[in-house]
């Protein structure tokens, strides 16, 4: 006898996680409440190996299902998968699915309230930015060991910078690293993310998170990220940030 339930009581993510952690083999059939779509997930000995919905197969089906907020499910134990269309571990699928949902929500919020709050970006024109933010850029650039500074809004737009080379690329690094740090911290029960570094050959990029933006600092080879981070936090706090740590 299969188990039945409502996705309001047990989400798709919970269903996957529970059955994988328990090492189950099962088919989970899902029915959406609004569009009448049907999908199936197949778990084999604790690994999510196949997903299907209409003509779609594989990981994209899982990502779509993770966005379902209502519907019903039926769990049938010991049903072998008809195919293998998923390679990634279930934990990675869940993380990627959650990331996509977050991105989708952010995009929806932005289109609903475009430019109404948060950092008002001063678009870059050459090595520039605007007003108080440029003062911060200048002060940060004055720290020993800092070769370049870039302020990036969370959507990746460079707000202000002072660096040689391509500030857009360094800004993108700051956003990638900042997002990954937030996800990693949440999943590994680490405390709030303070800063991160990426070492690439002789280059060190230090990324500091602020409530509305990421700060990327390009460090010289011999700079100490710990010392620079500490000084930079001081500059950012004095500059009107809302640092809580």
């Amino acid at each position: 006898m299969g188990l039945q339930g409502n996705l309001h009581d047990m989400s798709v993510a919970d269903l996957i996680q529970h059955n994988c952690q328990e090492g189950k083999t099962a088919r989970i059939t899902l029915l959406s409440e609004d569009e009448g779509q049907q999908a199936a997930l197949f778990i084999e000995q604790g690994r999510l190996v196949h997903a299907e919905m209409g003509d779609q197969r594989g990981e994209e089906v899982v990502y779509a299902l993770l966005g379902w907020e209502g519907g019903t499910f039926t769990l049938a134990p010991d049903i072998a998968p008809p195919a293998r269309t998923i390679e990634r571990s279930y934990t990675l699928l869940l993380l990627e699915g959650m990331r996509r949902i977050d991105e989708h929500k952010s995009a929806a919020e932005e289109s609903g309230a475009s430019g109404s709050e948060g950092v008002e970006p001063t678009r870059v024109s050459g090595a520039a930015g605007g007003g108080a933010m440029m003062d911060l850029v200048r002060d940060l650039k004055g720290i020993d060991g800092v070769k370049g500074v870039v302020f990036t809004a969370r959507d990746g737009v460079v707000v202000a910078h002072d660096m040689e080379g391509d500030p857009e690329k360094q800004g993108a690094v700051a956003v990638f690293v900042g997002h990954a740090a937030l996800q990693a911290g949440g999943c590994l029960d680490l405390g709030a993310f303070r800063w991160a570094t990426v070492v690439t050959g002789k280059d060190i990029t230090l990324v500091i998170e602020k409530p509305d933006y990421y700060v990327g600092l390009l460090l010289s080879e011999k700079a100490s990220p710990v010392l620079v981070a500490s000084k930079a936090q001081g500059v950012l706090e004095q500059g009107g940030g809302t640092e809580d740590g």
């Binding site: 990638f176 993310f193 690439t200």
Partner: peptide, 19 residues
Amino acid sequence: EVRRLDLGRPDEITFRDRQ
């Protein structure tokens, strides 16, 4: 993603929390 920006291949990535 960083590598795709032609910024080289990261050798080490560090996250530091408030503790």
